[in-house]
Computed example of a mutant assay.
Amino acid sequence: MRHQSVHTTVSRPPIVVLCGSTKFWEQFTEAALYETVAGWIVLAPGCNLTQPHPLWADPAQADRLKQVLDDLHLRKIDLADEVLVINPGGYIGDSTAREIAYARSLGKPIRYTHPA
């Protein structure tokens, strides 16, 4: 009987981070589905501040949370091998433009769901 080495290294699947306006939440879900089925580890926004929720019902709290989430998303870009921009109709808002610029500064490959 042959035994495998304990030191066998397993390569991880590539990581993609989804960027874009959360007003396209359904498109985020669809993109995550397709990327997952294609074998990618998917990082995406974890919440949608455009939909009401008690965690961000207070406007001051919502503003603070947005800053925390924006920084957290940059850390996701740090981890990613590639960026997929969710941009129906070519739409890219200010936050997404900043994320794209940040990803470019790191040399991350960037794909778009629609021509930019």
Rank of each mutant, 00 (worst) to 15 (best):
M1D: 15
H3V: 12
H3D: 13
H3G: 13
S5V: 02
V6A: 15
V6M: 15
V6Y: 12
T8E: 15
T9S: 13
R12S: 15
R12H: 15
P13R: 02
P14T: 10
P14N: 12
P14H: 09
I15N: 01
I15M: 08
V16H: 08
L18A: 03
C19R: 02
G20I: 06
S21V: 04
S21E: 03
T22S: 05
K23H: 13
F24H: 12
F24L: 09
F24C: 10
F24A: 13
E26P: 02
E26L: 12
E26S: 13
Q27K: 13
Q27M: 11
F28C: 14
E30P: 05
A31S: 15
A32M: 14
L33W: 11
E35L: 14
T36A: 06
T36V: 02
T36R: 07
T36N: 09
V37F: 10
V37R: 15
V37P: 07
A38Y: 07
A38M: 14
A38L: 15
G39N: 14
G39M: 13
W40L: 09
W40T: 02
I41H: 14
V42F: 12
V42T: 13
L43I: 03
A44H: 13
A44W: 05
P45V: 07
P45G: 06
P45M: 10
G46Y: 00
N48F: 03
N48V: 01
N48D: 15
L49T: 11
T50C: 07
T50M: 11
Q51N: 07
Q51E: 15
Q51T: 11
P52T: 04
P54D: 03
L55Q: 05
W56P: 05
W56M: 01
W56S: 00
A57H: 14
P59F: 00
A60W: 05
R64E: 00
R64L: 05
R64H: 03
L65V: 03
L65W: 08
L65N: 01
K66Q: 05
K66C: 07
V68P: 01
L69Y: 01
L69S: 01
L69T: 00
L72D: 04
H73C: 08
H73S: 07
H73A: 07
L74Q: 08
L74Y: 07
L74V: 00
R75D: 00
R75A: 03
R75G: 05
D78T: 08
D78I: 08
L79Y: 06
L79C: 10
A80I: 08
D81S: 09
V83Y: 12
V83R: 09
L84T: 06
L84W: 07
V85F: 02
V85C: 02
I86A: 03
I86C: 01
P88H: 09
P88N: 07
G89H: 05
G90T: 06
G90N: 06
G90V: 04
Y91N: 09
Y91R: 10
I92H: 09
I92F: 08
I92P: 08
I92C: 14
G93Q: 02
G93F: 03
G93M: 04
D94V: 12
D94A: 14
A97Y: 00
E99K: 06
Y102E: 04
A103H: 12
L106K: 15
K108Q: 01
K108C: 01
K108W: 00
K108Y: 05
K108S: 04
P109A: 02
R111Y: 08
Y112H: 06
P115Y: 02
A116G: 12
